[in-house]
Design a binder for these strands. Sequence first.
DNA 1: CGAAACGTTGAGCTAGTTCAATCCTGGTGG
DNA 2: CCACCAGGATTGAACTAGCTCAACGTTTCG
Lengths: 241, 241
Amino acid sequence: MSLLDPLIAKLGSIGHLSESDRNLLAALPITVRNVGANQPVVHQGDLPKSSILVISGILSRFQELTDGGRQLVSFHLTGEMPDLHTLYIRKMDHSLVALKDSVIGHVPHDAIHAAVSASSSLMALLWRATLIDAAIFRQWMTNNGRRGPAAGTAHLLCEIALRSKVAGGLYADGACDMPFNQQQLADALGISLVHANRTLKSLKERGIALIERGRLRVLDWEALQTAAGFDPTYLHLKADS
Amino acid sequence: MSLLDPLIAKLGSIGHLSESDRNLLAALPITVRNVGANQPVVHQGDLPKSSILVISGILSRFQELTDGGRQLVSFHLTGEMPDLHTLYIRKMDHSLVALKDSVIGHVPHDAIHAAVSASSSLMALLWRATLIDAAIFRQWMTNNGRRGPAAGTAHLLCEIALRSKVAGGLYADGACDMPFNQQQLADALGISLVHANRTLKSLKERGIALIERGRLRVLDWEALQTAAGFDPTYLHLKADS
DNA sequence: CGAAACGTTGAGCTAGTTCAATCCTGGTGG
DNA sequence: CCACCAGGATTGAACTAGCTCAACGTTTCG
């Protein structure tokens, strides 16, 4: 039982992990830290020397606009590394915040670099993780653009549900954590707070899905998927996809 | 003088390329092909066994929605590899099209994999290239979302101008290629064709920038940057950023 | 209990959409 | 050389999705 287990599980869900890669990961040095809800973790402009691992809780990345507006660009569940990209892009062009009380670990870049040069299969898997990240960005782009608010919201809910399911244990009885307030949901979809509220209301009234006390409950998975135009291909969950 | 020179130049613009890495790149096998404007290059669902290099021209990636709408998610200038990510994510979750008559090369994955395992610095640079891609996605997400149509359009123009400038020779006398029609511009920004037209009109009337015969002409760089809230950090053009 | 944060609702307004016509440009065939 | 055509650009006008403003309800937690 290691603090790195969530990472091992996550990487195992997107590709094959050999015994030796598993050991390499388990041996990574990690410094644990608690962060409270809405606490900043990394700032735009920072030059991190380590990458964050989400051990429990949920983090989110966001860009801040000159007019004070915010665009959330991603959220990160247990086992994910939100700023893994700082391995090869030193300067943060966005910020990282905890959406609920979370436990995170700092893993020094040096150690990851060493692990990556020791195993090309591990390198491939970590690279793949950042590529899946990018695939998710593409979908969010569409959520904010052509897909439109209604379908975009549904798409985001589909994604959260599925990613939680895959993360193992985070999805049960048709429900999973989704500790965003409606302002944050709006900031992820590029719509107004009021409109986010009304979109959720509509999903609830149609018996499709609802959010209560920070948890997403999916009532009709088929309908939600249809409303979203959701195709899970982009999450590349199978090693051969 | 090799067909791989554009790639070497591109990678050199985002990091340091050693002599031996340069040689590794120059030795990559490549099959050249001409594609006409609006011709598809790779389709959603494909499982490519090679990656594309843009030798000249401009390509674009896009997602197709169930209602027939399109979301452009990126465009790619000379020296870029639009589907480099298929190295570690086999299945295309979007399509690739040429926006103007272009010359492209196919570089087999096998050869790239071999080069990457031969040189960890080259691996780092290619990985970095995909990470910068992702950083651009984040900005486009904001273009489609919180930034709003006016600033988003300006931001896109800034990005095209700067990337063309860096690509070397593509930007001269305040102008560079930008062979999108207004429908494609609208599809990149998630707005209507009419609105895209009016946004461009406004930029022209204010003496900031204009598009004529497939070329972008920047009249007032300062004003364009201000209108966009443009901060070039995200392009990570310097090796230490 | 009371305060603070979050969620919900109504009403009026506006940015952006749709529809549809017209104009412009470059390319083609006679 | 010119008439014609197709794709793209531009414009006007009516409409509406989504926004802002502002109030009020609800939950959480000290």
